[in-house]
Simulated assay, not measured.
Amino acid sequence: MAIVNEELLTIGAFAARARLSAKALRLYDRLGLLAPAQVDEASGYRYYRADQVDRARLVALLRQLDMPLARISEVLGAGGTEAADRLAAYWADVEARVAGQRTLAAYLRGRLSGRSSEMYEKFVIETVDVPAQVVITESRHTLADELPAWIGASLGRLESAARECGGVTGAPFVVYHSEVSMESDGPAESCVPVADEAAARAWAARQGRAWETTVRVEPAARLAYARITKAQVAHPQILAAFEAVEQWVAAEGLETAGPCREVYFADWEAAGAEDPVCDVAFPVR
């Protein structure tokens, strides 16, 4: 019998009204998204109220946005304008991811079609001699999606700590000791040049292993670099910049002499999308 009483529906009848499968309803129950109004202790049969149909349909609609079930639980648990704000935040993340994938697809089309040289031509490659520097550093194994947030946070911590180490004496930079991608986690090393090596070593000794902090002397080097804008720092534009530098180094008969790096010479927060903010570079010999 589909209707148990005036208020409760069997799972089959409720599924038909909500336009969901019984299997989906059982899953939503297990995840806490949509609990039955009543479960028969003897038979285990689930029963739902008719006024639960709207919530069931809302879950189904949110699933059409490919929203993970955990995020759906957050939205439904918030209610009102907060629920709408959580949905907006989720969709902003989706659009940002799709925009990044669109750019990556265009980049890959260029590579696959043999037009890589056209992508590299927009970058001007130069060299600069950098003296030896005392640097305080923070290292982390991180995947590409976590990298931007970590760079900002780690450089912020190091620049704050530099006040105890005689002050900042040069542009902060990030060294990639191994590839950072969605499959490879580096490590990456944030570095801030400071004036007082003794004070820096005393500072590092107080940190312990909390942030994988160290002090070292970065040796003098000649860097081959391409200057890029804030917009170009995003993946995959920055990959094309690094590849352009590598191509130039090979064409000039030079060799790379150390891991690649990003040198952040401008105020990131104050910079606009088209303002130069970063040099992507390789030590060369």
Rank of each mutant, 00 (worst) to 15 (best):
T256V: 09
T81A: 15
L58M: 14
F14Q: 03
D66Y: 07
D85V: 08
C165P: 05
S190A: 15
Q237G: 06
L8A: 07
S73M: 01
F282D: 01
R109T: 14
D275K: 03
F173S: 02
V233E: 12
V59F: 12
P193L: 08
V4E: 09
P131Y: 14
F265G: 01
K23P: 08
P193S: 09
V94H: 13
I125P: 01
D93W: 01
V233I: 15
T137C: 15
T169M: 02
A13W: 09
D129R: 15
T229F: 13
Q64R: 06
V124R: 09
D66T: 12
R157W: 07
L58H: 10
L143I: 04
Y120N: 00
Y47V: 01
A106L: 11
G152V: 03
L158F: 02
L112A: 15
E255T: 13
L65M: 07
W91F: 13
S190I: 04
S73T: 06
Y47N: 01
T127S: 08
R201S: 02
Y48D: 11
L31A: 08
S160V: 10
V124P: 01
R30I: 04
D196L: 00
V284T: 01
K23A: 14
R216W: 12
V130Y: 04
A15K: 06
A96L: 06
W150F: 06
K230T: 11
R201Y: 00
S21W: 07
I228N: 03
I136M: 13
D267P: 10
R63H: 03
A56N: 10
A240P: 08
Y225H: 11
C278A: 12
R30T: 10
I228W: 05
P259D: 03
P148V: 10
A105W: 04
D66C: 04
W91R: 10
A195C: 01
E212Y: 11
P259Y: 06
T137S: 14
E243P: 01
F123D: 00
A84Y: 11
S160N: 10
S184V: 05
A257L: 09
A162N: 09
V59H: 09
D129K: 15
L76F: 02
A273H: 14
H177C: 00
R71Y: 14
V124H: 07
L27K: 15
A132V: 10
K122G: 01
G208R: 01
L65W: 07
A240Q: 04
G110V: 05
E243A: 13
A220L: 15
S116V: 10
R227K: 07
E82W: 09
A144H: 05
M182V: 05
N5M: 02
D279R: 12
Y264T: 14
A13H: 11
A99M: 05
V94C: 14
A2Y: 06
C165M: 02
P36N: 05
F265Y: 09
L61W: 04
V124D: 09
E179T: 08
E74P: 05
Y225W: 14
A56M: 12
A241S: 07
L33F: 06
D29A: 02
A42N: 13
R109M: 12
E274P: 11
G167D: 03
W203C: 02
Q101K: 03
M67A: 06
I72S: 11
L158E: 08
A224I: 00
Y264H: 12
A161K: 00
A106K: 08
A257P: 10
